[in-house]
């Protein structure tokens, strides 16, 4: 079934040709943190939270193909620290008020903060000026929470065939813009589009959903993000 094997933290992992390190790790029940990656989307390589060492060199696991005999370091103190730093950067870059965010409890950024034990970012908050686009009848974009992961861009282009979203500007001015002058309401986006569904944070929200799931039963209330992948892991051989 598998074409070859490689190791992650010394554990032998089977892989198929063309599989990325992240996909092979998932199949083996090893959770590598990720934010901009989503199943069915081409990897974007934006967030770098999935950084691992491949034969000693940092690479993003979501884009890097697994190769025979490859030696991957993943759960090391150094890598954990870098990843946490990136998550903290994303928190201070935008304006994240989890206490009233509809995504709270189901938000992947927040869930990574929990999993990594971030109590408060070590970096100063940037408090940027950002806007909210509520022109669409069914979907809204709150740029305050956007982490520029590009999922909406890829989903709209590759899954919906619409190109509703695209990055504009560059550097720390980068933001997602929509394919019309007057805001999202002037595009052909529909609430059923993948682009409207796949945002990992509360930046693209379906209107009139609100706080649908009660606290305690939301996605990441009880179990850390990644648990579902780790649950797949075969019991470790004895002595390990």
């Amino acid at each position: 079934m598998s074409d070859f094997t490689f190791t992650i933290d010394g554990v032998e992992v089977p892989a198929k040709r063309g599989q990325t390190i992240l996909e092979a790790a998932d199949a083996a029940g090893i959770y590598i943190p990720r934010l901009c990656w989503a199943k069915d989307l081409a990897p974007g390589g934006h967030c770098r939270v999935c950084t691992v060492l491949v034969n000693g060199r940092p690479q993003s696991a979501c884009t890097h193909p697994a190769g025979p005999g490859m030696v991957v370091d993943h759960d090391t103190a150094e890598l954990r620290a870098w990843r946490k730093n990136i998550v903290e950067m994303l928190f201070v870059e935008g304006n994240h008020y989890c206490m009233f965010c509809e995504k709270s409890g189901n938000c992947e950024l927040q869930a990574l903060g929990y999993r990594m034990g971030m109590t408060t970012p070590k970096y100063p908050y940037m408090f940027p000026q950002r806007t909210v686009d509520a022109t669409h009848p069914d979907v809204m974009v709150d740029h305050n929470r956007c982490i520029a992961c590009g999922r909406c861009v890829r989903a709209s282009r590759d899954l919906d065939g619409k190109n509703v979203f695209q990055f504009v500007q560059r550097g720390h001015h980068v933001r997602v813009a929509v394919n019309a002058d007057g805001g999202l309401g002037r595009t052909n986006l529909s609430a059923a589009d993948q682009a409207a569904q796949l945002c990992p944070v509360g930046a693209i929200l379906i209107k009139r959903v609100g706080y649908a799931v009660p606290v305690g039963r939301r996605l990441y209330d009880v179990k850390p993000i990644g648990s579902e992948i780790e649950a797949k892991r075969a019991p470790a051989p004895s002595g390990k």
């Binding site: 008020y97 109590t119 408060t120 908050y125």
Partner: peptide, 18 residues
């Protein structure tokens, strides 16, 4: 101890920071 979101990040009152 910094207790709660307002203490750790400014919280709701910090919305005026913009």
């Amino acid at each position: 101890i910094s207790l709660g979101d307002c203490a750790t990040m400014g919280g709701l009152p910090a919305m005026r920071n913009h």
